[in-house]
């Protein structure tokens, strides 16, 4: 079975984290745990104040810290992102909330605007962490791929723990990196078949490790999780697969 390199690979590529502070050292650790080797951290703290905290991270890969902020102006910051960060070459950009500069999410939106301009409308994958879920719609049109609300994640994990510890364990497994949710190309022989056929046919990865087909992708609806066994794969563009093991 031919794998789709873009979604099945382990490489995180070049990553940029904006509004980074020393408190977010855990993010650096998480990225490096997943294999990130080229990190650019952009923050408002003086470089001298953070350098000592990055020593351990730098032992695991390239980690660069640059002092800059959109507070200097969107255009100025966009130019900085082009010139100093080369944001256009990054695979993903993570925008963290920057507290103490007026309304936090508004500040993040300005940052995204700067990234959008720096990339001339074709930004890399942008992941923004917001503090207020109501601010989500403000990021429309800025090329933001994922808007993350950490507050809901915390609440949801604890709420699921109250209902079913098994489900909490499943979420932990997804978060701790042993399991992966990947998109695989749809094998040609399954194109005229149903989702049930795909589930029965795709039982293991090329290395023989068990996998589970979770859903599929279509051009119209995007991701469809568990569409039903009879769902035809004619319009499917790929499969959503759970890989890895957690035991």
């Amino acid at each position: 079975m031919a794998a789709v390199a873009s979604t099945q690979g382990d490489a995180l590529g070049r990553l940029v984290v904006v509004n980074w502070t020393v408190e977010a050292l855990g993010l650096v650790r998480a990225l490096q745990d997943l294999g990130a080797t080229d990190l650019v951290l952009v923050g408002t703290s003086p470089a001298t104040a953070v350098e000592a905290n990055l020593l351990a991270a730098r032992a695991l890969g390239e980690v660069r810290y640059l002092e800059a902020s959109v507070a200097a102006g969107v255009e100025t910051f966009a130019e900085f992102l082009v010139r100093s960060v080369e944001v256009g070459t990054a695979q993903s950009v993570i925008v963290l909330p920057h507290r103490g500069r007026g309304e936090t999410d508004a500040f993040s939106r300005l940052t995204c605007t700067a990234i959008h301009r720096a990339c001339r409308g074709q930004p890399p994958r942008i992941v923004v962490a917001v503090e207020d879920p109501e601010a989500t719609h403000e990021f429309a049109g800025l090329g933001v791929a994922t808007i993350f609300y950490p507050g809901f994640l915390r609440a949801a994990l604890l709420a699921h723990a109250c209902v079913d510890l098994g489900v909490l364990r499943f979420m932990f497994a997804l978060l701790r990196g042993k399991l992966r949710v990947q998109s695989w190309p749809l094998p040609a022989e399954l194109r005229s078949k149903s989702f049930r056929d795909a589930c029965l046919a795709v039982e293991a990865d090329p290395e023989g490790r068990p996998v589970t087909v979770l859903g599929l992708f279509t051009a119209e609806a995007g991701m469809l999780v568990n569409p039903g066994p009879a769902y035809t794969l004619a319009a499917a563009t790929g499969l959503l697969v759970l890989t890895g093991q957690d035991a």
Binding site: T7, D10, L12, L15, A24, G26, L27, R29, A30, L31, D33, L34, G35, A36, Q91, S92, I94, R125, V127, A129, A145, T146, F148, P150, F152, L153, R154, A156, L157, H160, M171, L174, L175, R176, G177, R180, V181, Q182, S183, L214, G215, G222, M223, V225, L240
Partner: peptide
């Protein structure tokens, strides 16, 4: 907090993860 960072890192690695995780949560 660390789980949140892991979530963002995973979302960067597996684009489908974010949507799938949000759905089940």
């Amino acid at each position: 907090r660390q789980l949140g960072y892991t979530w963002m890192a995973t979302a960067c690695r597996d684009p489908a993860f974010a949507e799938f995780f949000s759905g089940i949560v």
